[in-house]
Amino acid sequence: MIQADGLRKSFRGKPALDGFDLEVPEGVIYGLLGPNGAGKTTAVRILTTLLAHDAGTARVAGYDVARQPKQVRRSIGLVGQHAAVDEILSGRQNLELFGRLYQLSPRQARRRAEELLERFGLADTGSKPVKHYSGGMRRRLDLAASLILSPPVLFLDEPTTGLDPRSRSQVWQSVRELGATVLLTTQYLEEADQLADRIAVIDAGRVVAEGTPAELKSRLGGDRLDVVVRREEALERAARALSSIAGTAAETDRDTRRVSVPVSDRIAAITAALSVLGEDVEDIAVRRPTLDEVFLDLTDRDQTGGHGAKSEKEAGV
């Protein structure tokens, strides 16, 4: 449904996309992950016909984004990084306005607005000006506006940034119920983990890893054994024991008194660790690597590079 081959885009000679490839099958919720400035928004803007690319090709719902922008626009919904709704108008007026611009008749636009307000829990506040809406309500209205034509393909650029956990799970729920093909960018790895069927990690304008969340996690190598010891003095002994059990060096975190190693046989490792360390063990657990660890592993390497400085600057905002 969404296909990008070797997309390139530079702003004043600085590449924002540098050979970006993507393949999103129909019906899949696809997560695009990357640090600040990685090129996520640029990719979404190109795929939604808002921005022209310098090289490469992209097709959405079977149409070429450069040559058939009108057809693409009829097949997509876009929720941008900032809620793009009119602040002064009411939620209902917003939906009617955009419905008319989707070429619905006045009556169809009105009916569709009612349906969407109902579906997104905005029926009560539909007549209030949007400037009195909470962040979550605004986001839901934004989402509703992009669904006026029930498009087969939906683009969501950081749809839950700035929302509280409750509003966030409401948006997630709505996205799951859509049944559309969705390309979603996000800063929250948990969001990608919860929502996305597949994930691409993008860094400096190109995809550096692709797969299901589980596949990406297993790239870091199987499970990890975490042991928390009772006393700080026992840390060293625990590290030595776990290193010999796992056959690789253990990571030690002094603050949390935790020692961690990758393991292949979970049960054998737990039994061995308990028998060696015995009384010193306060807590012991085997877990999968988190997506955070995968993400940091994939994107941390060139933190000294040009965009590393930008990430730091933006992180403070």
Partner: peptide, 10 residues
Amino acid sequence: GVMDRFRSLP
């Protein structure tokens, strides 16, 4: 972003 919204409509 209202301009972007307009520009993404058919």
